[in-house]
Design a protein around this nucleic acid. Structure first.
Length: 837
RNA sequence: GCCCCUGUGGCGGAAUUGGUAGACGCGCUCGACUCAAAAUCGAGUUCCGCAAGGAGUGCCCGUUCGAGUCGGGCCAGGGGCACCA
């Protein structure tokens, strides 16, 4: 056995052995229990760095561990390959988005392979393959036919120079990022998926996701945003603007007697009707639309209103008329687009009332005595008892809400209702590099979904990015087709699907990929749900919610018999690295920083930040693997930081990992060399070994890889200190199996070099012997008044009286007691004795 | 503004139901080996103190025989949502 482990040779060798042996191929049919381990598939942006690696290595440890435990493991990899960066590259570098994407995939695949991941590469696909997106189109058609897809007008950010729709992040200070032209809001007819049909289910389903981080469930809950309240009609008194009444929504029906105005959104149909006849109103509405929508602007934005002159009748008092305003803070797409204003108990209404001199009435107070105290300074949105509210007086807020709803329902002017913050999912993108929406627009038949035998609708290759606008729309022939229904002249939908659609079902396609349909139900159900899903917390809301919705939608149409796709979810931390900047604020590579320093120029060590190309602080895997080997890289990515927190990349860290890989090798070598006798028991080492087996298993299951690493270090320390024995030999062999999921190359190499048969990847995971988990001696803490004074050893399970006697005869205890009798003695068996003086 | 999370040595971080705070790693110090270095091995490493001892888990208060852990009130850092009625 060589004296040093040579990763350069070993990594490539074992990777080849695994690949050629199909070691990590997942068999659909096997008698073993299944385990589906998945990391969020990458977007092929160019090259991976070690930050991506951390994510995949974590999943890899789980996959290898499960495999050794006898599970049939599905651990696939693919590419989330549609998206804007490819189009940007096409425009900037004049390469086809597909070409750019496929080149990136090839690079990144090779980079990933350097890590020695236990992946089933036979299931690899990219979402830009027609053999993937064609099935997605079929699913879209199915959802369309089930009534879960519809079209409506929706506003987009429009760049008038580039003639293109911009995503929110492409709008910088109200201007298009590329053209610099002021962005306009334009209404386009777009496709939506009815995620709101599932709002209640998606919310309730969260409760069952007990293997998800609490934080993510909370974020989704807030995003879905369920509010209970009441909807009711305001009748318009006097001249009508074409309508007799309008509806408002409130979560505080209890404050109905505190109302002093009603307000409409600038987009409300009545507001628009008024604007037609009234230029002043029209000007006000235009003014509202001009304002920015950034957080900072909204925070400082003044509450503005326009008095329409209309009056509405208070539903509980026909003689009570309220003025109707158009107000800039009322949103059209939440509730009903109209509100009733209660200045005393809502901050926005309070500000509005102050500005327009409207009455501020108190209807909730801390107690009856405060009924006539004015509401001052700010609104009081909290709890209390109802005052100045006729039949509600004296009730608490909840009772009053119920009473008002009951009355409204009895009298027929309103009803209790629930509204959601969640909006339907707009999936139309006016872009080339995405899944074409499989719809044809026919003058006679309207929007017609394509029959499945006309799928896939394949993206044309001969496209032109020189002219502004959507290349699909401008393609000379692509969009012209015969209507599938009437055969007449028709045009294709030229919008493509949001890339979140692509990632909403890829995990199903990994599990089952027949050529003629999206997936086979039975095969997919054999693998699903994903047992452990790993990815960044930035996907906590959108991707995970959309995938949950998509799965439920497939269940709804009978294609899949399950509601939740991801049983366990883990959100891992990022890998961070120091940044450097020169005097001009330009980011420098670490080596550039060294050069600049040597040349006497100013270099500012910047913050430690997430690895990103623009900050020039990425660490690619190649040089690390070349210098230290895949296992050292894997080991470092797993040690030190808890996996959910950020990990700082340091040279010292990777070197430490490298040293440990070598140490493992030395331990295995020493064992093989047969230094001394391989005979005799070492009970202490046996116990340490079995405690480590138990702890490691629990820690890997809990994804506490940093603790599992610590377990291994402790065991290695114990083995090094132990004299040769049969126990020691077993401990070394077992340790190799325990590290195999984390450092598989050195484990295989040592396994083979010490004459063991087969692959360690196929070896069974060790089992802890319960009898060896128990110590026969324990250390008892001797405390006086809760303060540690001494420790003593005692046999495990020693009776309380013995421990008490031992403590009382302890020198330190006697010195402190100084002859006085203790007030009390508390004995915790096998742990401590606390003498209360 | 609302909701949530985190705070432990020089650093990353460990600590079952409240029960010996600082496991393990990094770094550092001293020593062995070496002509020397690297590698490796050994000892030490929360702070103050020669020691005995004392203090100590962001701060203050409380519950308890006993609090990093539980309760109340602050402070700091981070995250999510945000004119959502």
């Amino acid at each position: 056995m060589a004296s040093r482990f040579n990763p350069l040779k070993a990594d490539a060798h074992w990777q080849k052995v695994w690949e050629e042996g199909g070691t990590f191929r997942a068999a659909d049919e096997s008698g073993r229990p299944k385990s589906y381990i998945l990391e969020m598939f990458p977007y092929p942006s160019g090259r991976i760095h070690v930050g991506h690696g951390r994510n995949y290595v974590m999943g890899d440890v789980l996959a290898r561990h499960k495999r050794m435990q006898g599970f049939e493991v599905l651990h696939p990899m693919g590419w989330d390959a549609f998206g804007m960066p490819a189009e940007n590259a096409a425009i900037e570098r004049k390469v086809h988005p597909g070409e750019w994407t496929r080149a990136n995939i090839a690079t990144m695949r090779e980079q990933l392979k350097l890590l020695g991941l236990a992946l089933d590469w036979s299931r690899e696909f990219a979402t830009c393959d027609p053999s993937y997106y064609g099935h997605e189109q079929a699913l879209f058609v199915d959802l369309f036919e089930a009534g879960l897809v519809y079209r409506k007008e929706s506003e987009v950010n429009w760049d008038p120079v580039d003639m293109t729709v911009l995503a929110n992040e492409q709008v910088i200070d109200g201007r298009g990022w590329r053209s610099g032209a002021p962005v306009e809001r334009r209404k386009l007819s777009q496709w939506f998926l009815k995620i709101t049909d599932f709002a209640e289910e998606l919310l309730e389903g969260l409760a069952g996701l007990d293997q998800w981080p609490e934080k993510v469930r909370l974020m989704q809950e807030n995003w879905i945003g369920k509010s209970r309240g009441m909807r009711f009609r305001f009748g318009i008194s006097g001249p009508k603007p074409g309508m007799e009444s309008f509806e408002v929504f409130t979560t505080r029906p209890d404050t109905i007697f505190g109302s002093s105005f009603a307000a409409l959104s600038p987009d409300h149909p009545i507001a628009l009707a008024i604007a037609k006849a009234d230029p002043e109103a029209a000007a006000f509405i235009a003014e509202c639309k001009r304002g920015g929508t950034t957080a900072a602007e909204l925070e400082t934005a003044e509450k503005l209103g326009f008095d329409t002159g209309l009056k509405v009748v208070h539903p509980l008092d026909p003689d009570w008329l309220l003025p109707v305003y158009i107000a800039n803070f009322v949103l059209m797409d939440y509730g009903t687009g109209a509100i009733f204003g209660v200045p005393g108990h809502d901050q926005r209404d309070f500000e509005f009332a102050g500005k327009y001199g409207l009455p501020i009435r108190r209807v909730v107070a801390a107690s009856d005595e405060d009924a006539n105290k004015p509401v001052e300074g700010e609104a009081e949105p909290g709890e209390g008892v109802l005052v100045n509210s006729r039949f509600l007086d004296g009730m608490d807020v909840e009772a009053a809400k119920a009473a008002v709803i009951a009355r409204a329902e009895a009298e027929g002017w309103g009803e209790g209702t629930t509204v959601w913050r969640l909006r339907d999912w707009g999936v139309s993108r006016q872009r080339y590099w995405g899944t074409p929406i499989p719809i044809v627009h026919c003058g006679g038949c309207g929007a017609v979904p394509l029959p499945k035998d006309q799928l896939p609708v394949v993206l044309p290759e001969d496209i032109d990015f020189e002219t502004p606008g959507n290349p699909l729309d401008r393609h000379p022939t692509w969009k012209h087709v015969a209507c599938p229904r009437c055969g007449g002249e028709a045009v294709r939908e030229t919008d493509t699907l949001d890339t979140f659609v692509d990632s909403s079902w890829y995990f199903i396609r990994f599990a089952s990929q027949p050529a003629d349909r999206p997936f086979d139900k039975a095969t997919a159900e054999r693998w699903l749900p994903v047992d452990q899903y790993i990815g960044g917390v930035e996907h906590a809301i959108l991707h995970l919610l959309y995938a949950r919705f998509w799965t439920r939608a497939l269940q709804h149409i009978g294609m899949l018999d399950m509601a939740e796709p991801f049983q366990g979810l883990f959100t891992q931390g990022m890998v961070t690295h120091r940044t450097y900047q020169d005097a001009g604020g330009n980011w420098l590579l670490p080596e550039e920083a060294d050069e600049a320093k040597a040349a006497g120029r100013t270099v500012t060590p910047g913050r430690i930040e997430k690895m990103s190309k623009s900050k020039k602080n990425v660490i690619p895997p190649e040089p690390i693997v070349a210098q230290y080997g895949a296992d050292a890289l894997r080991w470092f990515l797993l040690s030190d930081s808890p996996p959910e927190r950020d990990l700082q990349w340091t040279d010292a860290g990777i070197e430490g990992a490298w040293r440990f890989v070598q140490r493992l090798w030395r331990l295995a070598s020493a064992d093989e060399a047969g230094e001394g006798e391989h005979a005799g028991e070492d009970r202490a080492l046996d116990r340490k070994l079995h405690q480590t087996i138990a702890a490691m298993g629990a820690n890997i299951e809990a994804l506490a890889f940093n603790k599992a690493v610590a377990n291994i270090y402790e065991l290695a320390n114990a083995i090094e200190k132990a004299p040769a024995s049969a126990s020691r030999r077993v401990a070394v062999e077992t340790m190799l199996r325990l590290v195999a999921p984390m450092a598989p190359h050195v484990a295989e190499e040592a396994w083979a070099a010490t004459g063991r048969n087969g692959l360690i990847a196929d070896a069974p995971w060790p089992e802890a012997d319960p009898a060896l988990l128990i110590e026969d001696e324990v250390t008892i803490a001797i405390q006086v008044n809760g303060k540690l004074r001494d420790t003593e050893t005692a046999p495990k399970g020693a009776p309380k009286e013995d421990l008490e006697a031992m403590a009382l005869s302890n020198e330190a205890v006697q010195r402190i007691l100084a002859g006085a009798a203790p007030k009390k003695v508390i004995v915790v068996p096998d742990r401590l004795v606390n003498v209360v003086a």
